[in-house]
């Protein structure tokens, strides 16, 4: 094998890796992965929200014994305020990726982000 053959081979291998990496980067940047927020209170579905499709920020008041407000924005959701004793739900902050979850035990409220 001649030197220029090795250089060509090396370039092609680099292109392979760039192609692989580039695609992954593209997917991450574009946030095309679905993110659906599922909100339940006492095992009853309150709302399913396609977070990627949210245009205007809005708020949701949850049912249940405790006064709780959720904040919904494009791509993310959180417990904004709650009058439960420990505030663990509020402290959890923003949820945005599939698998993220926040819970208010006293109010039996669960927000979970799912990919489907």
């Amino acid at each position: 094998m001649k030197k220029h053959d090795l250089i060509l081979a090396g370039m092609i291998i680099c292109i392979v890796f760039i192609g692989f990496g580039g695609l992954k980067l593209y997917r991450a940047e574009n946030n095309n992965e679905p993110r659906i927020a599922v909100i339940t209170q006492d095992n009853v579905l309150v709302e399913r929200i396609d977070l990627n499709a949210v245009e205007e920020p809005r708020e949701i008041t949850l049912p249940g014994p405790y006064h709780e407000i959720l904040q919904v924005e494009k791509g993310r959701i959180r417990f904004k305020e709650a009058d439960c004793p420990d505030q663990i739900c509020v402290r959890r902050g923003w949820l945005q990726n599939p698998g993220d979850m926040a819970v208010c035990l006293p109010n039996k409220a669960i927000i979970r982000i799912t990919g489907n």
Binding site: V16, F17, F20, R27, V38, M101, V103, I110, T114, N116
Partner: peptide
């Protein structure tokens, strides 16, 4: 090989789990 590299970037989930949450026995 290049094509495989490109395609590998588009991963498809052959194993998609089912996950469910509920509130029972005082907890999640």
């Amino acid at each position: 090989v290049f094509s495989f590299g490109f395609l590998a970037g588009c991963s498809s989930n052959s194993e998609t789990p089912i996950e469910k949450q509920g509130f029972y026995m005082g907890t999640v």
